Simulated assay, not measured.
Amino acid sequence: MPSPVLSAAHSVAALLPQHAPLVTATRDGLVESIHYGSAIALESDGTTAAAAGEPLAPFYPRSSLKPLQAVAMVRAGLDLPAELLALAAASHSGGAKHRQGALRILEQHGLSVSDFANSRDLPYGPAEREEWLRNGGRATQLTQNCSGKHAAMAATCIINGWPVKGYLDPSHPLQQLVAGTVIELTGEEPLALSTDGCGTPLFAMTLRGMARAFGLIARAAADDDGTAAAAVGLAMQRHPEMVAGEGRDVTELMRLLPGAVAKDGFEGVQLVGLADGRSVAVKISDGGDRARMPAIVRLLEALGVDASPLLPLATAPVLGGGHPVGLLQATDFLNQLSTPVNEAP
């Protein structure tokens, strides 16, 4: 009779995505670490230009959903200055401008921090966190990296006469609108449902679907077509320091690659949309944050993007005694597909 433990292990293994090796860290010529994952690059018409691993496997986009959530809120009447709309789509570092921006959104709509429903945390940025702690700060809802989004969500409720209390409930009108917007922009139904770290409803999508959404947002911004997607994309491009923060790679990517709309997510997620509607998406299987950018730059190169300005993001030195002895860099992972991308997951 088969062991229940072995049977359970076999069924879990059967569900594991077939990721490919995307990024390696070498030390004095020896491969010390390997980051596996899946990746996809889409042409502007949605066809696949390059891919690796299993890009149709369901995954949780985490905070890379924020631009899509922001599009839903603008459609529902949210009208903010560009820097505050960028903050609504942000995983901010928790600096003074981020905290003050979230407070401005609240104050403009007669709200306060007591209306937040997100979790508490210290500032996400290392420098911002150290400064906050030096001044006696503690974990709060305002310093949590999603506070801009939550301020915007509460404001959208006020604008529409919806109850602020319970705005994170999946049955709330706001979250129903978000769900419909995510489905529309990705072109796919959620493959699973969960709750993000901040408490917001979370949808499992595919890399292809998320890439499609970012391509649509970036192209709308380039066309400046007056849509909610254009407003969000332009706000992020014009205020990348609000989307993340100084010293953050997502902020730097948007500065170095004009016309791009970029957003990261916890557990090794990175999305980039380009002005002509092309897009790229990466999920690092072990959640390794350092592997996102080397993989995403390699995908951008596959689309013919001049990635030379992105070289500082594409590699990082591996140090020994404070001196470079190796390199973090992308593998030649393109077209290492485990599942044909034109098949349903």
Rank of each mutant, 00 (worst) to 15 (best):
V5C: 00
S11I: 09
H35F: 03
H35T: 00
G37A: 03
A52Q: 13
G53S: 07
S64V: 03
G77L: 03
L80Y: 06
A86T: 04
H92F: 07
A96W: 05
L103R: 15
E107G: 01
L111Y: 07
N118Y: 02
G136T: 10
L142F: 12
N160T: 09
G161E: 15
L168I: 06
P170I: 08
H172Q: 05
T181I: 11
V182F: 07
L185W: 08
T186Q: 05
L191R: 14
G197L: 05
A204Q: 08
L207V: 11
M210V: 10
R212S: 12
A221K: 03
Q237V: 04
Q237T: 09
R238Q: 15
E241H: 15
A244K: 04
G259K: 12
A260V: 00
K263H: 05
G268F: 01
D276C: 14
V280K: 02
V282F: 12
R292L: 06
M293S: 14
P294W: 13
A295R: 00
P312G: 13
L313A: 11
L313E: 08
G321Q: 10
L327M: 14
L328C: 03
Q329G: 05
T331G: 07
D332S: 11
D332A: 14
F333K: 04
Q336N: 10
S338Y: 02
E343Q: 14
